[in-house]
Design a protein around this nucleic acid. Structure first.
Lengths: 136, 136
DNA sequence: ATTAACTGTAATTAAACTTATTACAGTTAT
DNA sequence: ATAACTGTAATAAGTTTAATTACAGTTAAT
């Protein structure tokens, strides 16, 4: 996770939650985040697949939250963008002659998964709503 | 943290712990991990700065643990290689006109730091020794 | 004292990943 | 008909990561 996807999605969802019942365009959202509108549309498509957002095409179109922000947890959001373990990547040493090298990825896998789970459990306790409510 | 540095350093330390009182060469270590020896030497230099490892130059030289593996925690190791937040990077939206965009990085910073702290506290409970003892 | 086998580090290249941009087909309101 | 959108593919540019090359310095053994 050495990218901005979590921050970007949180930003999008915060805007949608702060301006409910309004169709926000990807261009307008992109200006707030200072990123390219195409990136916003790509992330909106992820949010769409999660069932969190609905969109309206055509003129005066845009996106809107389709689920209450208290039903979306930070863990849900993290899982939607997570593309690696918190502790990083493993080397490909499984085919080495070394007895440690042969086995270490099995042990690292356990440690990496445990660590991911700790993060996810902590994030399950935080809702999008409580994040959004911090803004006046 | 979308790199192999944590895995690499764990691997190095595990070998050093499994073969105590022996000078292991960077080339030998690199063969076990299946990475380039120069990368091993770079990480050894990090371990050296932490005071965990000592090295002997010249022929029959190599590296050796200089601290007991029960005194090194996974949190120490994580902190030594950590170069980003667990939840990733932030966008640079601070200078936007949008009131949310202006403030969001402050709130994200809090959330990102809290999440990092959770990982670190969990890893503080795990020692290098308990990891290494898993190997026969 | 010469050689072989190391460390330590800088500089460069190559590969992988991330973000931005261009392009365009399709949709909808006016 | 047109303007303002979505959705998505394709490509380019930028950034990060890992590998490689190179070499000066150290040490052990002959």
């Amino acid at each position: 996770m050495n990218n901005t996807r979590f921050a970007t999605i949180i930003h999008i969802l915060t805007l949608l939650a702060k301006y409910p019942d309004q169709w926000l365009s990807s261009e307008w959202i992109a200006e707030s985040i200072k990123i390219n509108p195409v990136i916003v549309r790509k992330e909106l498509s992820v949010l769409h697949k999660q069932g969190w957002v609905m969109s309206k095409k055509g003129k005066d179109g845009g996106s809107m939250l389709s689920q209450s922000s208290c039903e979306i947890s930070m863990a849900d959001i993290f899982n939607a963008v997570k593309n690696s373990n918190v502790l990083g990547k493993k080397n490909t040493c499984d085919d080495t002659n070394c007895p440690i090298g042969k086995e270490i990825n099995i042990e690292l896998e356990k440690l990496f998964n445990e660590t991911d789970d700790i993060v996810i459990h902590a994030l399950e306790k935080k809702s999008l709503k409580s994040f959004v409510d911090q803004f006046k």
